[in-house]
Design a protein around this nucleic acid. Sequence first.
RNA 1: UGGGGUGUAGCCAAGUGGCCUAAGGCACCGGAUUUUGAUUCCGGCAUUCGAAGGUUCGAAUCCUUCCACCCCAGCCA
Length: 559
Amino acid sequence: MSKNHFLRSIAENDIKNGKHDYVYTRFPPEPNGYLHLGHAKSICLNFGLANDLNGKCNLRFDDTNPEKEDEEYAESIRQSVEWLGFKWSKLCYASDYYDQLHGFAVELIEKGLAYVDDLNAEQMREYRGTLTEAGKNSPSRARPISENLDLFERMRKGEFDEGQYTLRAKIDMTSPNMTLRDPIIYRIRYAHHYRAGDKWCIYPMYDFTHCISDALEGITHSFCTLEFQDNRALYDWVLSNITIDENLNGEKGKLMPRQIEFGRSNLEFTIASKRKLIQLVKDGHVSGWDDPRLTTLVGLKRRGYTPKSIRDFCAEIGVTKKDSVIEMTVLENAIRHDLEASAKRVFGVLKPLRVVITNYPEGQSETFTVKNHPKDDEMGTREIPFGREIYIDHDDFMLDPPKKFFRLGPGREVRLRYGYAITCNDVIHDDKGDVIELRCTYDPLTAKGQTSDGRRIKGIIHWVSATHALDAEVRVYDRLYTEPNPSAADDFITLLNADSLRVFADAKLEPSLAQGKQEDRYQFERVGYFCFDEKDNSTNKIVMNRTVSLRDTWAKVKR
RNA sequence: UGGGGUGUAGCCAAGUGGCCUAAGGCACCGGAUUUUGAUUCCGGCAUUCGAAGGUUCGAAUCCUUCCACCCCAGCCA
């Protein structure tokens, strides 16, 4: 159940007042790109509201521009909607309504409410006027109905060139609302449509198509974003001037869908513009539409975001009439919250530093049985092997540590989580002076959290047995841009974060991960949440992605 | 500047004349618990609702004026 918001109130009141018996919404993407977080908000709104109020919701492709659309996009959109956890009542395509749409256009012509215009694009711009000056009527506006009918039919038959003629609604060239200045409702396009094929060479425009599609499907509430507020007048004009005696559900009578607008939400440090996304993909700045740094739904999925976390995020940001900019931490909080409860705990070392425990007998090993989740016993236990040589993370050792560093340093003692306490006696450097190995001793009396003398060991670090460790490549992602609002820049490419992807090619993982499942999520204790990469992980090579880090107050202290 | 919208904390966002000396989440700051510097817990965080006037016993909510920001002049959606 999502939260209350003004659209839900409107829908509920419409039912309470008897205006409608049910709510029927639709999610209407154009199949010209991949879905992103902004679409998720619309999906959760439309499907979520229908679910909550026992109504229906269609997935409808608004596919009236053959030049931009493709089945590849449509397929991905269907998958993303399903992945988010929603089921459509009907799968619809505006392109399935082309015949009916054509009929309604003829009806408008017959009523003297539409005419065929021969103005070219440039002339039309001149006649349209400006924001502050009225437009003037095209000479074609006076064309007789019979001639309009004939010309429109010949447009349909393909007797003219692209751009030679358009069909326009006859409304008001002096309207202060620009969308009402005799909008084009049909244009000539000799383009192959991914579904309709080559049947048509005239294609209906959005404003004409959308309202009629809604009416045909019996939609009660047509939610869209704020920039369509001016278009609402045209939406209503079209529907009040055509005749729909019966909709596709067999309902009779005038059932007017109502368009209501809500504000877009933008996420800081991201770009949703399709044009710019295409540029990133084409120029190789990212690996594809599903690059884990992108906030496309396929990218978020590959990154390890769960459908629930995205639904929760959408509920959290709300629905209002105000465009908003959401901080990244809200999204991160949503996925951390979900994964904290559901992810199995494991040990993974991203930057391995070899540690030899000199007083542990050579060739000996033992296993510790540990919980998969600290609070959820139903998630069971697993065994982790321990031996003379282990790896710890380089970040857990400092040659000259500051006071508050509760980890390893020369002469210091830390606890190996679930294991013994070790003390660092020697530090081995290579020729360049870099630390490459630690020599430590362990205290056999410190298993199970105890110490023999009651001393308190503050530091606890994770580790993995060197002889049992799995090799893996671990990819760690950061924000793609260096600025919170990259879209505002002249050239957003210059704002790309050079460190948005860090690859840890020599990561060492605990052996239980060999039985890991693609769909499972893991918490590398003290590090973050990880998943297997859906494309590059294989039986030969383990590849994992960091979904999000754990909250890190130590990182703040360091700063 | 014609038309259409929006303005409540750093970011979202409840609230639609009195129980508002304004919910909740994120962020931030304490403090407790903790074999994850995680989680959890407890506490703090707007005398003020874009500004100024006005109406009213009483206003974030009503009125007036002003200010700021967003959208519209595609044969895109």
